[in-house]
């Protein structure tokens, strides 16, 4: 048997999920971050964040349709990480990298946190 692999499939699926998010189609949770509301798909949040995995794998929380994060979480950093979840692009710059690192640690996204750390070291070196 042959397996025909569509090499673009993973990226095309994620792009469609981001289209669904921007049209608010099948989004099933509202995340409140310091007054700002973000609509998202629980499955994407759980797939990308250890924090959301532990929250929604708890049977008591599985049907939650709204969750508010610790007020110390920065909305701008959260939106950068949410966009990363849906696009694979992490939009870093010197002004957001520290809060994005802290928020990635809070959301238990250690690979992203490591990347933020390397970004900071490279910039301070230059």
């Amino acid at each position: 048997d042959d397996c025909i692999q569509f090499t673009r499939h993973a990226g095309d699926v994620l792009l469609n999920f981001n289209r669904l998010r921007s049209r608010n189609i099948l989004t099933d949770v509202s995340i409140q971050v310091d007054g700002q509301l973000f609509r998202a798909h629980k499955a994407i949040l759980v797939a990308c964040s250890g924090f959301f995995y532990s929250v929604f794998m708890d049977p008591e929380n599985a049907s939650l349709s709204a969750i508010s994060l610790d007020p110390k979480v920065d909305p701008k950093a959260f939106s950068i990480l949410l966009d990363f979840m849906y696009t694979s692009c992490l939009n870093l710059n010197d002004t957001v990298v520290v809060t994005t690192l802290n928020t990635a640690i809070y959301l238990q996204m250690e690979h992203v946190a490591n990347t933020c750390h390397r970004f900071m070291k490279s910039r301070s070196v230059q």
């Binding site: 964040s49 995995y53 794998m57 238990q108 996204m109 690979h111 990347t115």
Partner: peptide
Amino acid sequence: YEGVNTIKEMGRSIHEIPRQD
């Protein structure tokens, strides 16, 4: 994205969900 240089990160991006808990 205009004027943004893209750095390719080849490593793992997110946690891996276990086959069963």
